[in-house]
């Protein structure tokens, strides 16, 4: 099943070498897929699981919230439908507006997931933009790294902030491409490029992707991966969009590795200009 989901190139290379070709390495662990997806906004768990399978993603973000103490307490929970044994669960701190709340959420997540250290830190600044509160993000990152967490951090596309988060010891820096849930694509590719030039950790675009080409653009810039939720969950056909994103991320990665041709203002003929059987222009 897994091989069916991956691109044939990846599958062939893996079969030949027995190792993961061109892995995404985060906190010492290798992943075949460079796509990380969220688990919010789906119609139900079944749709979420089908999208996850179609996406090829191996890392799934989840939110930490109060249990419902009402009459629905017998319903299955997300982690009973999508097993932490099969996927890397990435708990987020969505909804936190202070470093203290984010740190508390991560500690709850660690307990919930039996000592799991990998977290997605996001400390938000305001409800309208969901832009990060960078000051609180830096503060939370320092506390979490000191406490032994492996921190993947959502942040602005500011290269200096990205560098500081790396210096603190975050295992991945995840600048936004556009506001969370906006689907506006990579609004400032030049900032992402500046972040990439100085990067010492995997840079993952988190937020802003709207459709497959946006994901490819992020990967063609040289990003290590893309994290998305709404672009898949709010597509008219989420499972089909998940499959599209799987290919878009893989295609963008291959294009980046292949190295694109230079841009030219004028044309460059692909067929020989000599040897024609009619007079040249």
């Amino acid at each position: 099943m897994e091989a069916d989901i991956n691109t044939s190139t990846q599958a062939n290379t893996r079969a030949a070498t027995g190792a993961v070709a061109d892995p995404l390495r985060i906190a010492g662990r290798d992943y075949r897929s460079r796509l990380i997806i969220g688990s919010g906004k789906y119609r139900d768990f079944a749709e979420n699981r089908a999208a996850l399978e179609a996406s090829g993603a191996e890392i799934l973000t989840v939110a930490i919230r109060r249990v419902n103490l009402g009459q629905h307490s017998g319903e299955p929970s997300l982690l009973e439908v999508i097993s932490p044994d099969k996927y890397t669960i990435l708990p987020n701190t969505a909804g936190c507006y202070s470093a203290d709340d984010a740190v508390r959420t991560c500690k709850m997540a660690r307990e919930l997931l039996d000592g799991h250290k990998l977290v997605k830190l996001e400390v938000l600044g305001d409800q309208k933009t969901l832009f990060p509160n960078v000051t609180e993000t830096l503060k939370a990152a320092r506390t979490l790294v000191a406490d032994g967490f492996d921190v993947m951090v959502y942040t602005s596309d500011d290269p200096l902030v990205a560098r500081e988060l790396e210096e603190i010891g975050c295992v991945s820096v995840m600048p936004l491409g556009a506001p969370i849930g906006s689907g506006l694509g990579i609004r400032n590719p030049y900032n992402i490029r500046m972040i990439l030039e100085n990067a010492t950790t995997p840079i993952i675009v988190d937020a802003g992707v709207g459709t497959a080409s946006d994901a490819s653009i992020a990967m063609e810039l040289g990003c290590a991966g893309v994290l998305m939720n709404t672009a898949i969950a709010e597509a008219e056909n989420p499972v089909l969009m998940a499959a599209a994103m799987n290919k878009a991320v893989a295609a963008g990665r291959e294009a980046f590795l292949a190295g694109r041709m230079p841009r030219r203002l004028y044309a460059s003929a692909s067929s020989p200009t000599s040897g024609t059987f009619f007079p040249p222009l």
Binding site: G38, I64, L69, A94, M108, L112, M228
Partner: peptide
């Protein structure tokens, strides 16, 4: 304060205690 699962059985509650119980749900 986080209470480890292993201590649920032996930890007795007192009047006025405040508890937060959380789980993982869908999120991005």
């Amino acid at each position: 304060e986080i209470l480890p699962r292993s201590e649920f059985g032996q930890t007795m509650l007192s009047g006025g205690d405040t508890l937060e119980i959380v789980q993982a749900i869908g999120g991005g």
